[in-house]
Design a protein around this nucleic acid. Structure first.
Lengths: 208, 208, 208, 208
DNA sequence: ACATAAACGAGACGGTACGTCAGGTCTTTCA
DNA sequence: TGAAAGACCTGACGTACCGTCTCGTTTATGT
C-alpha cells in the first residue's frame, strides 16, 4: 500500500525528489512519532522532539510533511496497513458476525498503544478540516465500508428490510461505539457491544 | 446555574480568594476567548491573545484557570446556560417529538459561532482525560439525559419495549448525529435526522 | 536621629501623615531588608519579599519609600547611627592615628554583614544620581570630613605643608581603600593600610 | 585583541558552535546594547529591548551571553579595543606626562556616551563578584598597568625613590580620580588632575 | 571511477508564546 | 483611618518550539 503524504498540494514550491528519499529516516521518524505520542501525548509532541529522537534533522521532516499531524497520520497508517479487502465474515448469522468483529475492535481500541495516536488524530481533525478529510478517508471510511457491504449483502438476502438506509444503519451501529471511546462516555465492553448489535438489528428486520 | 471553574482541584497551591474576584475581568475573558476561537481557531488561540483582547493581565487568567481549554470551557458553558429542566416535548408522538428537537439541534450545530468552541473542546477533551470528563458532565450528559427521560416515559407508556436498554437506544440516536458533525463524515440535514429517528425507533417498538 | 525618606521630593503627591506611622512596621521592614540583602543579594531583593518577610502590606512600603534602594539606605543608616562627632584620635602622631583608624575600618569592611548593603547602595548610586547624592551625603561625607578635620589640625600644627590641598590629600588616602574594596582590586590588609598611610604622608610633610 | 565572551565557563551545558555564529547579529546586539543603556539607563535596559532593537531573537542573546551585564561588557570592550601597548608617553618629565594623560582621561570620562555603560558595569560588578573580576581584568587592569610601568621606569631612572611601593603609588593617583567620578563626589577638572599629580608625586621623590 | 547534485544531520537564526515573577496601583476588610 | 491582604494590569524574565536558512557530509546515480 502506498503512503503518500497527507499534503498532496505543492503548487509553486519545488518538490523534493522522492526517489532519493531515505527510507531509513522515514521509518525512524515514524517510530519516533508513535513512541513519543504515547509517552508525552499529542500536545507535547513536537517536531523537534521527533527529529531528535529519530536522529534526523528537522528539515528532513519539514521537507516531507507539512505538520506534526501529517507525520502522525502517515506513521499511524503505515503501522496499521490492514487488509480491508477481506471484508466482514459472513456465516449467515449477521448478529453473530457483527458481535465477533466489534468485540475484537473493542479490544483493539482498549489497547494503550493504539489509543494515543488515534485519539490525537481524531482530535486534530476536529479543528483542521483538511486533516479530518484525510483521516476519515484513509482510516475511518474503509472500516465503515466493510460494514456497509455486509449489510448490503444481508439486505439482498432478505435478512434486512429493503427500505432501510444501510449507511445510516451502519452509523447507528458504529457511532455509539466510536463516541463512547473518543469522549470517554462509557466503557467498550463486550456486553455493550452485544446490546448494541442486538438493539440495532431489531430495527432492521423486515416487518411481518 | 452556577459555573464553577473547570479545575476544582487546588491540592497544595494556595487558592486565590474568589470573593474578591473581578466580575468585569471574568466576563471580558469569556468574551475574548469566544471571539478569538471563532476568528483564529483553537490551535492559534493563546492565553496572551485572550488577555490582550480582554484588556487583562495574563496572571489574571493563570490565577483562575489552568489552561486555555479550561477558560474556553467556562466561557462556553457560561454562554449556554441552557435550561435542561424543561426536558423534551411530549406530544404523545415520540417520533415527531424527537424530529422536532433534533432538527433544531442540527440547525444549532450548523451555526458557525457555535462550531469553533464546541469542536475545540471536544478535540481538546480527546487528549485530556480530565477535561473530557468535565466537558461530558457539563455539556453532553445533561443533553443526553433529557432523551433518556423521554424514552423512559415512552417505555412506561408501552410505546417502547420493556427489554430495551434505554441508554444504548439514546446513544444509537445521538451518536451518529454527533459523529457526523465532529468528524465531518456527513451533513446534518433534516432528511438525515428524520431517517435516523425513523430507523432508530423501528427497533424500539414492542414486538407483536 | 531623624530618618527622613531618601526621596525628599514628593512634590504634588499627598504626603501620608507621618505622625500616625507604625514604628513597629518601620522596624520590621528595616530588619527584613537588611536580612534579605545579605541572604539573596541586592538584585534579588524585592519589595514583595521585604513586605512578606516583615509581615507587612506592600502598600505600607510604597507609602513611605520610593524604591528598594531608598528602603535599604534608610535601613542601613538606621543600623549604623555612628558617632562622627568624636572625630579622629589625635595623639600627636598623625601616621599612627591614621593607621589605627584605617585598620579598624578595614576590619569593618571585611565583615560580611556590612558588605552586602553597602556594596548594593554604592552600586545603585552609580546608576542613580539622586540616590548617590544622598548616599554620599549621608554615609561617605561625614566619614571623609573627620579625616579632613584631622589633617587640617595637623596642617595648623605645622606637621603638614601649608600649600597642601587637604581635601585631595584625604582622597589620596581613602579612595585607594574604597576602590580596592568596591571593585575587588585587592585585599584590605593591615599591611596595605600601613603602606598607604606611609606613602601618603611622605608627600605632605613641609619641605626643608 | 581578541574579545572572548564574558562567560568562559560552559561546564556541563553543551556549548553552541561559535564558528556558525552570525557576526551580523553580534554587532547589532552590541550597537543596540550601547545605544539603549545610554537612552534608558542600565536598570531599564532589558534583554528583550536589546533583542528587539537589534532585530534579533532573544534566544540569540541567551545563546551567547549569560546576562545583560555580560552583553554590555562585551559590547563596551569591543567598542574600546584600545591599544595599551604604546604605554604612557615618556618625555622625561613624569609630572607633565601624567597630567597630559590624566587630563585626556578626564575628558573621556566626562563624555556622556562613555558614562552610561562604564558606570553600569562598575555598579553591576559591585554585586556580582565574577563580573567584577572580568571587568577589572579586561578594562581596569590594563589601564592601571601602563601607569605602573611608567613609574617603574622612573624609579629605575632615580626619579622615584627605590623604597616606594609602585602599585600603591599608582592607586593613590588613580583611585581618587575613579572614585570622584563613580560616586560623583567631585568634578573631574584639569585643575583637580594637576593638583592630584603634584601632590602624589611629592611623596615619591627620593629624599635628600 | 568519478563528478555532481540532492537529501541528509546538525543547528543557528528571527520569532511567538509559554508560564512565572515582580512592579506599582487599587480596593476591600479589619482593628 | 492606617495598615494587612491581595487582586489587578503591566512588562520582563528565561525556555521551548516554530519554520526557515545555511553549513559541511553522505549517498546514489549517470556519464
Amino acid at each position: 500500500m502506498a503512503h503518500t503524504s497527507a499534503s498532496s498540494a505543492g503548487s509553486g514550491a519545488k518538490a523534493p525528489d522522492s526517489s532519493r528519499r531515505s527510507e531509513r529516516s522515514r521509518q525512524a521518524i515514524f517510530d519516533a512519532a508513535l513512541a513519543l505520542v504515547g509517552e508525552v501525548g499529542y500536545d507535547k509532541l513536537t517536531i523537534e522532539g521527533i527529529a531528535s529522537r529519530a536522529g534526523v534533522g528537522k528539515q528532513t521532516i519539514y521537507r516531507w510533511w507539512p505538520s506534526k499531524a501529517a507525520v502522525l497520520l502517515d506513521a499511524f497508517t503505515a503501522g496499521i496497513d490492514e487488509d480491508y479487502e477481506k471484508g466482514l465474515p459472513d456465516t449467515g448469522d449477521l448478529a453473530a458476525d457483527l458481535k465477533t468483529v466489534l468485540r475484537a475492535t473493542a479490544d483493539e481500541f482498549n489497547d494503550h498503544a493504539f489509543q494515543a495516536p488515534y485519539r490525537a488524530l481524531a482530535a486534530a481533525g476536529a479543528n483542521d478540516e483538511e486533516l479530518s478529510r484525510t483521516f476519515v478517508a484513509r482510516l475511518m471510511e474503509p472500516g465503515t465500508q466493510v460494514y456497509v457491504n455486509r449489510l448490503r449483502r444481508a439486505q439482498e438476502a432478505g435478512e434486512v428490510a429493503a427500505d432501510i438506509d444501510v449507511r445510516v444503519a451502519v452509523e447507528m451501529l458504529l457511532s455509539p461505539f466510536s463516541q463512547r471511546w473518543l469522549m470517554r462516555t462509557g466503557e467498550l465492553t463486550h456486553a455493550f457491544v452485544d446490546t448494541l448489535v442486538d438493539q440495532a438489528l431489531r430495527g432492521l428486520r423486515p416487518r411481518d
